[in-house]
């Protein structure tokens, strides 16, 4: 099989991975649905002890556990629900892992087929960045916090890969002279890595805000209550950003400046991409400072992090699509 065919086939592998992420998300949703049903049952049982008795009687007499009548937390129906939720969660995680392997295969095939690092245009950047994010999520999913985060991450990943393989798709081919450099591997490689980490961090920050709000209002049911404690999410978001920020400083900014000096003869020229990389850097610097300042911990800092992620998205999608600068390599 020749290299072109390998690169072409990579597209189908990525499309299959997209569907895999969708299936994984649906499994997670089903799991979350069962959990929320159980929690609601617990709250209702606590609120109305009489009905609980009825419920127990009903579940004892009418065996099918998938009926909503199985409301008592300690009843046999609940145990079965729990088991089903666990099965669905396991299925979701398994699919997630399997799909990530498929996506990795797609990315590697694209790289092999085009004989270069697979991040030279928006399509390749998107699938590789998603792969990074997926791997980070899988690494996080060993913890309780990470598992909750992963559920929402899958949706984001599905959307990104979906966009990549439809609107952003660029057929495999060589890159223009300006990109034929080992700098492409490191400079853009660091950007992909930081992009993936910032994405995970943004999901965690968003969940942190929801969780903190829910705790403030004393919610015991609903989505907010299903989340881990907000302080843990806050710490996780900070750690992810603390890893991504130096990578962003080093790859996009410093190595970018070196490459710009080699390729264009100046290390900083206020090209739109450079400007937005700097804006992103400033926004995340503000986040790190905000977290170090009393009174900004928690959801306020998370809002700053989300603004930072907004600038990441704009540096990526906005600058590539709207502006015509020196970084017009998107291939659109």
């Amino acid at each position: 099989m020749d290299l072109d065919a390998v690169a072409e086939w990579s597209r189908y592998v990525v499309v299959v991975a997209t569907l895999g992420y969708l299936a994984s998300w649906l499994a997670f949703c089903a799991e979350a649905g069962i959990h929320s049903r159980r929690r609601r049952a617990v709250t209702e049982a606590a609120a109305e002890p009489e009905r609980e008795l009825v419920g127990v009687a009903a579940s004892a007499s009418a065996a099918p556990a998938d009926e909503a009548t199985a409301s008592a937390p300690s009843g046999p129906g609940d145990a079965e629900l729990q088991e089903r939720a666990d099965r669905l969660g396991g299925l979701g995680r398994g699919l997630f892992a399997l799909t990530t392997v498929a996506l990795a295969a797609g990315v590697v095939m694209r790289g092999l087929g085009t004989e270069r690092a697979p991040w030279a245009n928006m399509y390749e950047f998107s699938i590789t960045g998603t792969l990074v994010a997926s791997i980070v999520f899988i690494a996080l999913a060993r913890t309780v916090v990470g598992r909750v985060v992963a559920v929402w991450a899958v949706l984001l990943i599905f959307v990104t890969v979906g966009l990549a393989s439809t609107f952003l798709y660029v057929p495999p081919g060589p890159v223009q002279p300006a990109l034929q450099s080992y700098w492409l591997v490191i400079h853009v490689g660091c950007a992909v890595l930081a992009f993936g980490l910032f994405t995970v961090g943004a999901v965690v920050s968003a969940l942190q805000i929801v969780s903190e709000r829910a705790a403030e209002r004393g919610r015991t049911t609903g989505f907010g209550a299903s989340l881990p404690e907000s302080a843990g999410l806050d710490r996780l978001a900070y750690r992810l950003t603390a890893i991504a920020f130096p990578i962003w400083t080093f790859g996009p900014l410093i190595l970018g400046a070196i490459w710009a000096e080699v390729s264009w003869g100046r290390y900083w020229g206020w090209d739109p991409k450079e400007v937005w990389a700097l804006i992103t850097w400033l926004a995340y610097a503000a986040y790190l400072h905000a977290r170090a300042t009393a009174g900004w911990k928690g959801s306020k800092a998370s809002v700053v992090a989300l603004i930072g992620y907004g600038t990441v998205l704009f540096s990526y999608f906005g600058v590539n699509i709207l502006f015509n600068g020196l970084h017009s390599y998107g291939g659109l």
């Binding site: 206020w270 739109p272 937005w276 804006i279 400033l282 926004a283 503000a286 600038t311 502006f323």
Partner: peptide, 13 residues
């Protein structure tokens, strides 16, 4: 920091 980030935007547009 935020002001600098915002002030840099018009130059990219």
């Amino acid at each position: 920091l935020f002001l600098l980030a915002v002030a840099a935007i018009p130059g990219s547009i």
